[in-house]
Design a protein around this nucleic acid. Structure first.
Length: 648
DNA sequence: ATTCGGACGGCC
DNA sequence: GCCGTCCGAATT
């Protein structure tokens, strides 16, 4: 067989036991096109299937080889570095190469590929931007290391303020700039399209228009593929993107930076459900690039990497942070139904909230963070605020879309409702949506502009004139010069969520709101309505997300949850899961719980398997082997495996 | 003798 | 998955 006439092909087959390369002969006519990374079509089990050339070789172990059927295009879309990352991610999540490669390489867009690429002027990092990282201890050392071509890894805890030390976008661009200076490329990742747009605006100002690309699934197939090609062809050295851009092919990658790893949009909803933070970690590991994980808060996962000394901490002390940010105070969520002031009566908030808003309005806009409508669809008595229950079965009544409260089991109550505690007849929704609360604040502050921003009707920016801005989580507008104050209403609603990460997530959101408020020396205040003894609330008041994450990690360790333990859930039909539990020869130290019915659908259930981190890789590999064996034996019953799932 | 079909093994 | 093959039973 001639020179490089064997192509190792990753064939797109969904079967777990066929998750390995297959050799094909490269026919004479395709020699020029059959390059490493090219998309091909091959005959596999009698059918034509898609695949990628992983490598070219001179010989094969096998005597007889089929020929490549077609080279779809000679464009090398799957580089060896990305192929290694895809394999590592698949192995980590007990998934297959073909599943992960679908997340890594966007669908081909033929016209875009054939068209002349636009001109990409070089990113000009000589324009000095604001220096942010140097304001942090060891920040200068990080930049120097990047500039010198080294690969530091850091967990950057960003001070929650709107500008200066809180300007995380400038910090990421600064790190990128230092990396570009070393002759390498950089990848900056943000959780959503809104952040991407804002980061891109800053990147344009710093590096010049067109000197970088943004890579996101939301930009449509053509634009997405054009940006992908600009990266893989080495036409740009700076890529900004969202979740799937974590796999972006960049020659000579020097840095991956990821903003706010606690955001739930980092969790990929498609199998094998990789988390972008872990993809970035695996990328730094497999390609030896630098890693910068920045956030106002700190996840237990990042805390673990810091404690293992795999990430270096980069942040202010809590005392330094308090000196640089808004002051945070707690208002007890007391018996305000009896309060005299109009806001307390109308919107059910403590008197202190009214005072804070009134004084802050004198110097600027005020943000009111309200829990998302629908968090608690339950209804309560307007008199005593007790939860309203069904007169027939005593289950909580819920607020239906039609506006009439009803019991989930018995339907709308037949006779007029009366409160079983105080005998009252009027009902109200305890957590009002933005629209409703907007009206209430309008009444309490006559003459003040009141605007609402929610996911459905978001507002991007507000100016510095006094206004009350009500916003649901994630839809908070930016105030051009920072809010004079922010009020976090009903913090208990977030904390009461039946979720392992409820308090971590709550602190993350509150710090994000704090970051929109002016620092204390400019009069900025954050008022939190809630239970002052809550650990997450105390961490907010002290601006100490690191201390919080340390204790959070200890708790996860005691409870046997990720990232302190390896936890895998397997979902499928209950009898199938019984078989799985038996056939998974569990080594000692590996526990299994269930299978339990999930209630999501008839006959479906979940089996949870957990073990120490030391045994984690062996457990995941054993589960993968089980999937392969089952697929090879054609055992019926689909299974869904999640490694370290984000929500349990 | 020939054809049909269902099960099983392998997929380069 | 899906295809090919192999073997037994049904059909001529």
């Amino acid at each position: 067989m001639g020179e490089n006439r064997v192509a190792r092909v990753a064939v797109d087959v969904p079967l777990a036991h066929l998750d390995r390369p297959f050799d094909y002969r490269v026919p004479e006519a395709l020699v020029d096109q059959a390059v490493v990374g090219a998309r091909v079509r091959v005959r596999f089990a009698g059918r034509l299937r898609d695949g990628f050339i992983l490598e070219l070789a001179e010989t094969s172990d096998r005597a007889e080889l089929l020929s490549l059927h077609t080279v779809v295009s000679p464009e090398p879309v799957l580089t060896p570095a990305v192929a290694r990352l895809v394999r590592a991610v698949a192995d980590h999540y007990a998934g297959s190469f073909s599943d992960v490669v679908r997340l890594a390489v966007p669908p081909r867009h033929g016209l875009t590929e054939k068209a002349d690429p636009p001109a990409y002027p070089p990113a000009d990092p000589t324009q000095p931007g604001a220096t942010v990282l140097t304001g942090y201890p060891t920040g200068s050392a990080l930049l120097t290391a990047l500039r010198d071509g080294r690969s530091p890894r850091a967990a950057w805890t960003v001070a929650p303020r709107p500008d200066g030390l809180g300007d995380w976008k400038a910090g990421l661009l600064e790190a990128a700039s230092a990396t570009l200076d070393s002759g390498r490329s950089a990848l900056l990742l943000v959780p959503d399209a809104r952040d991407l747009k804002r980061l891109a605006e800053r990147a344009t100002a710093r590096f010049g228009a067109g000197s970088f690309v943004t890579l996101s699934a939301e930009s449509g197939p053509a634009a997405r593929y054009r940006a992908f090609l600009a990266a893989s062809r080495g036409l740009v050295r700076l890529v900004l993107g969202t979740r799937s851009a974590g796999f972006a092919p960049l020659p000579n990658l020097g840095l991956v930076a990821l903003w706010d790893d606690g955001d739930d949009s980092w969790a990929e909803p498609r199998a094998p459900y990789p988390h972008a933070r872990e993809v970035a970690v695996l990328r730094a590991h497999t390609s030896g690039c630098a890693l910068l994980v920045g956030a106002h808060s700190r996840t237990a996962e990042v805390q673990r990497l810091v404690e293992r000394e795999w990430l270096v901490p980069l942040g202010l002390s809590p005392a330094q942070a308090r000196g640089a940010c808004a002051v945070v105070r707690v208002a007890a969520d007391g018996e305000h139904a009896l309060d005299r002031d109009p806001l307390a009566r109308v919107a059910r908030v403590p008197h202190q909230v009214f005072e804070t808003i009134r004084s802050a309005l004198a110097i600027g806009p005020v943000l009111i963070a309200v829990p998302r409508a629908g968090y608690h669809p339950v209804v309560a008595c307007a008199g005593c605020r007790d939860i309203a229950t069904c007169p027939t079965c005593s289950q909580p009544l819920v607020d239906t879309a039609g506006g009439r409260p009803a019991c989930r089991w018995c339907g709308p109550p037949l006779q007029p409702w009366s409160c079983s505690t105080c005998g009252g007849h009027r009902l109200r929704t305890p957590v009002a949506g933005v629209t409703r609360t907007t009206e209430e604040f309008g009444k309490a502050f006559p003459g003040t502009r009141v605007v609402g921003s929610s996911a459905e009707t978001p507002i991007e920016v507000v100016d510095d004139r006094p206004a009350i801005v009500l916003a649901t989580p994630g839809a908070e507008p930016i105030a051009r010069f920072g809010y004079a104050a922010a009020v976090l209403l009903d913090t208990g609603a977030l904390l009461r969520r039946p979720d392992l990460r409820a308090s971590e997530e709550a602190l993350r959101r509150w710090l994000a709101v704090t970051a929109l408020v002016r620092p204390a020396d400019e009069g900025g205040t954050v008022l939190v309505v809630g239970e002052a003894s809550e650990r997450s609330l105390q961490a907010l008041v002290r601006l100490d997300p690191v201390g919080f994450a340390g204790r959070e990690l200890v708790e996860r360790s005691e409870a046997g949850f990720p990232p302190a333990a390896k936890l895998v859930t397997i979902e499928g039909e209950l009898p199938v899961l019984d078989e799985v539990r038996v056939s998974l020869a569990l080594p000692s130290g590996v526990e299994a719980q269930g299978p339990f019915a999930t209630g999501s659908s008839e006959g479906l259930g979940r089996l949870t398997v957990r073990c120490s981190l030391a045994q984690g890789a062996a457990l995941v590999s054993a589960i993968r082997t089980l999937l392969a064996t089952r697929a090879a034996a054609k055992v019926e019953g689909p299974l869904r495996v999640r490694v370290d799932p984000q929500v349990i």
